[in-house]
Simulated scan of single mutants.
Amino acid sequence: MKNLEVLCCFFMASKKQGSATRALVVEDIKVDCVILLRILRQLNCEATVAHNGKEAVDLFLEGKTFDIIFFDKDMPLMNSPEAVTKIRSMGATEVKMVGVSADFGGMEAFMRAGADMFVPKPMKFETVDSMLQEVISKKNMSG
């Protein structure tokens, strides 16, 4: 079912703008993950989930690419600031990386690691929408 939802989101978005905006959600808390996925689906975004920083890094090692990544801060195996640093060091400079946490002290860790911005939890529809619009317009200008 999950793959079908991603496929449907991709199909709807590709009809609208040529190619879907691809998001990676790096989140280990199921409720937070479901909320962000629902927002992304409403915004016609193709979304993939990684349950920790290591899974996110592994996706890049497999050659996957994304337009935007939402990272929860504290997770098992590898925290997000560490994952941001590793993904940036692999040459992923175009992807917008967003640190997300209820811990406001997390902003400094994300920015030091190379994230583009920090957003406090809970994520708001309008915040995600404006970030995606920025990514889409940047993508349209470069493509």
Rank of each mutant, 00 (worst) to 15 (best):
V6F: 01
N3S: 08
K138G: 09
K64E: 14
K54Q: 15
N3F: 12
K86F: 14
D129I: 02
M131A: 15
V31W: 05
K124F: 12
F104R: 08
A109H: 02
M117L: 04
G106D: 08
V98K: 01
C33T: 11
K64V: 04
G53C: 08
D74P: 00
K138T: 11
D116V: 05
A102C: 11
V128F: 02
F70G: 03
F110R: 11
E27N: 07
I136Y: 07
F125E: 05
K139N: 04
V6M: 07
L59P: 00
E27I: 01
M97P: 06
F104N: 12
E46N: 10
K73S: 01
A13E: 06
S14Y: 02
I69C: 11
A13W: 01
E27A: 11
C45M: 05
D129M: 10
M75T: 01
E5R: 15
K86H: 13
F71T: 00
K2G: 15
F11I: 15
V84T: 07
M1W: 13
S101I: 05
H51E: 03
I29S: 07
L7E: 15
F118Q: 13
G99D: 10
D28F: 02
T127Y: 09
N52W: 08
R112I: 03
A109K: 08
E27P: 00
K121R: 13
K96E: 14
S14F: 10
M111I: 11
D103F: 13
S80H: 02
D116F: 02
